[in-house]
Design a protein around this nucleic acid. Structure first.
Lengths: 175, 175
DNA sequence: GTCTATACAGAGATAGAC
DNA sequence: GTCTATCTCTGTATAGAC
């Protein structure tokens, strides 16, 4: 799965070749098919893996003793970071999201993860005193996805994306 | 190009087969290669076509005599509409955006269009009395992209996406 | 569980006629 | 400009041995 995330982050879902994945993982292609039904099965498993990793990050951010406002900023800015692992996860996640437009099998896990993320953000927003936490949560999480994609396509710098997000959070919290 | 947009909207950039495009356009595959260098050339031309269409919509929205605030809402909500043609354009645009992560040839036209859109939105925001129009413009346009993708993956309904966007606009204009 | 070898299909691209 | 026919390569997936 880690090899899959690497390959997807480098070449996209469309560019994922089973042979290359095998090479990246240091095994034969046949072994891939032993563990997964087909190429689509690899993608589904990869999506679940990325989701899981995102959830782990989230839980970590939520388990601190910081103020709600600081927790909220941390949680949302998690995706917009410079470290290789985060960036790869983010690219792979964006790819799988985009693929889900045409691959119904990917939709359910995607929707579930999105909902869980929204809920976490909504809780923090409510604690931080937002007036419309549900709307605000969908607003901010969708914004993170939009900014993330712009970052990956080079349409915006990472710093600028973080500034835009911080600005939007401030607007939601009324300052 | 219209056939290309249809095929991309239905099967994605990833699913665009030259043969299918030819069928959709009612010509032979050889003719595609006569007019375009290769499959990548088709994609680049399709992106330009979608960009142009988006620019036309934008100009139209800007040429009305409405209040800046109403113009702003119209312009941003343009992408989130139910009509087949708009939805197809929006899906194709999203696909091409996602593809640009791995296809450097698509990046320049993408960045140019994004910038033009940002500028238009920024102008309207300034007229409508926003306090930080540049930041707000990038905020709102990136949000539209995020919401648009969620809509296409079925993670949010169209009405809800529109509500979230309207909410975000209101926040930026301080009510 | 894991490999090597290979069958098979699909899709990009071109040749050459009209 | 446009077609039919076809070549070629790449990539998915399987067979069968260890």
């Amino acid at each position: 799965m880690e090899a899959a995330v690497r390959v997807i982050a480098q070449h996209g879902v469309r560019g994922l070749r089973v042979e290359q994945l095998a090479a990246e993982a240091g095994v034969s292609t046949a072994l891939i098919y032993y563990h997964f039904k087909d190429r689509g099965g690899v993608l589904r498993a990869a999506l679940e893996h990325v989701n899981q990793r995102a959830q782990d990050y989230t839980d970590q951010a939520l388990s601190t003793t910081e103020e709600p406002r600081a927790q909220l900023e941390n949680l949302l800015l998690l995706e917009l970071r410079d470290e290789t692992e985060v960036a790869m996860n983010s690219i792979a996640w964006g790819e799988l999201r985009a693929s889900a437009v045409f691959d119904p099998d990917l939709r359910d896990p995607l929707t579930a993860t999105t909902r869980a993320w929204n809920d976490d953000v909504e809780t923090l927003l409510a604690r931080a005193g937002a007036t419309a936490p549900a709307l605000a949560a969908e607003h901010l999480t969708a914004l993170v996805e939009g900014l993330s994609e712009r970052w990956h396509t080079g349409s915006i710098t990472l710093d600028r994306a973080r500034a835009v997000l911080t600005h939007a959070i401030a607007r939601e919290l009324g300052d």
